[in-house]
C-alpha cells in the first residue's frame, strides 16, 4: 500500500516567555524579557497509508496538535520533511488544501450567528465547487449526518453534537482524500460522542477517506482507529495497532469498591493486586488481568465483603504512557511495531 502521508524527522521548537511572580517580576519584565525554548515536537517520523484511520493520543501539550498543524501547513517545522498526498504542506499549501479537510474541535469554523447552511455556501465558494456538484454533495452529506432540521437555524442555537456534525459537513464538501480531526468529541456527552465516532468510521469504510484523529479520550481512539500513535513530551512513545496496546499495556484495570462496613484494607489473597487507595469504606485496587481475570477478582470481592458499589475502570491515559515509558527505558533497543 502506498503511503499517503510521510513524516520524516520533524521537530518544532517554540519560544516562551518567562515572568517572575509578584510586583518585582512585573517591574523587571518592563525592561527585560527572558525566553526559554521548548521542543513541542522532537524528531518524529511515521508514515500513514491510504485508507488508514490513525489515532494520535497523548496528554495535553504532548505535541499531537502541533504535529497535525505541521501536516496541514499551519505551522512550519523547525526541521524535518513532510509530504502529504505528494505535496509539501508548507510550499504547496493551496494545492494541498483542495485535497484535505480539517476539523478543530476547539476552533469552530461555522459562523456563530448565522445558520450552518450559510457557512456551507461560503465553503463551496472557497473550494470553487461547481454549483450542481455542490448541491448534490450537500444533499448526500445532510442525509448521512442527519442534520436536515438544524442547518437552517443559527449555529449558536445548536447542541455541541449537532454543531460538530455540521463542522464535519463543512470540511467534507470538497471530497477530501484526507481528513484531519483535532479533538472532535471534546466536551460532548456519551451519546453525541458515539454518533461522531460512528460517522467517522463510516466515512472511512464507505468513502475510503484517510483519517487522522487526535483525542485525549482513549475510547474515541479505541473504537475508531486500528492504529494508534502515542505522543508524549514531543516524542512518539508507541506506534502500532490499537489491539496491540491493549494486549501489551492495558493488561491492568482499576477496581473501585465501596463497602458497607469499615475495613482496614481489602485482603483477597491474590498476588498481582496492588492497593492504590485505602479509605474507611472506599478502596481502590489495581489488578493485572493477565494474571487474574477480572471476573475472578470481582467474584472474590463480592463473596468476601459486603459491597455497596463496585466500579471497573480503565487506567488513565497518563498511567499507560508512564508504563510505556518505563518499559521503553528498560529495554532501549526494542522496536515498536
Amino acid at each position: 500500500m502506498a503511503a499517503i502521508i510521510k513524516v520524516e524527522n520533524i521537530s518544532k521548537e517554540f519560544r516562551i516567555k518567562e515572568k517572575e511572580p509578584g510586583l518585582k517580576g512585573s517591574l523587571k519584565s518592563l525592561f527585560t524579557s527572558k525566553y526559554k525554548s521548548i521542543d513541542a515536537v522532537d524528531n518524529i517520523s511515521f508514515n500513514v497509508n491510504k485508507g488508514e484511520v490513525v489515532g494520535f493520543i497523548g496528554p495535553n501539550g504532548a505535541g499531537k496538535s502541533t504535529t497535525i498543524k505541521m501536516m496541514t501547513g499551519i505551522l512550519f517545522p523547525s526541521s524535518g520533511k513532510i509530504n502529504v498526498i505528494n505535496y509539501d504542506p508548507q510550499k504547496e499549501r493551496k494545492k494541498l488544501a483542495f485535497k484535505v479537510g480539517t476539523v478543530f474541535g476547539q476552533k469552530p469554523q461555522l459562523w456563530y450567528h448565522l445558520p450552518a447552511i450559510d457557512t456551507f455556501n461560503l465553503f463551496a465558494k472557497i473550494y470553487e465547487i461547481p454549483e450542481k456538484q455542490y448541491q448534490q454533495r450537500l444533499k448526500e452529506l445532510i442525509k448521512t449526518f442527519e442534520v436536515e432540521e438544524v442547518i437552517n437555524q443559527p449555529v449558536r442555537k445548536l447542541s455541541l453534537g449537532q454543531r460538530m456534525r455540521c463542522e464535519m459537513i463543512a470540511s467534507l464538501l470538497h471530497n477530501p482524500e484526507v481528513l484531519f480531526l483535532d479533538e472532535p468529541t471534546i466536551g460532548m456527552d456519551i451519546v453525541a460522542k458515539k454518533r461522531i465516532r460512528e460517522l467517522i468510521k463510516n466515512l472511512n469504510e464507505n468513502d475510503g477517506v484517510t483519517v487522522i484523529l487526535t483525542s485525549h479520550d482513549l475510547e474515541d481512539v479505541e473504537q475508531v482507529c486500528k492504529r494508534l500513535i502515542i505522543i508524549n513530551n514531543g516524542k512518539i512513545v508507541y506506534d502500532g495497532s490499537t489491539k496491540g496496546i491493549r494486549e501489551k499495556y492495558l493488561n491492568f484495570k482499576i477496581i473501585q469498591v465501596i463497602l458497607n462496613e469499615k475495613t482496614e484494607s481489602l485482603n483477597l489473597g491474590l498476588k498481582n493486586v496492588k492497593a492504590v487507595f485505602k479509605g474507611k469504606f472506599r478502596h481502590v485496587i489495581e489488578i493485572d488481568t493477565s494474571k487474574h481475570p477480572i471476573q475472578e477478582v470481582v467474584k472474590k470481592i463480592v463473596s468476601k465483603y459486603n459491597v455497596e458499589d463496585i466500579n471497573i475502570l480503565d487506567p488513565p491515559i497518563e498511567e499507560i504512557i508512564s508504563r510505556i515509558y518505563q518499559n521503553k527505558t528498560d529495554h532501549k533497543d526494542q522496536k515498536w511495531d
Binding site: K94, W111, H113, L114, D118, L122, Y127, E128, N175
Partner: peptide, 28 residues
Amino acid sequence: MKQTSSIKGHWELFKEYVKLNLATALEY
C-alpha cells in the same frame, strides 16, 4: 473539480463574504 485559485474565485469569495457580513450586521 477545478483546482486553481483564480482571481475570479477570489472575487466570488469576496462577494460571498460581503453578503454574509451584511447578514450578520442585520442580526444586530
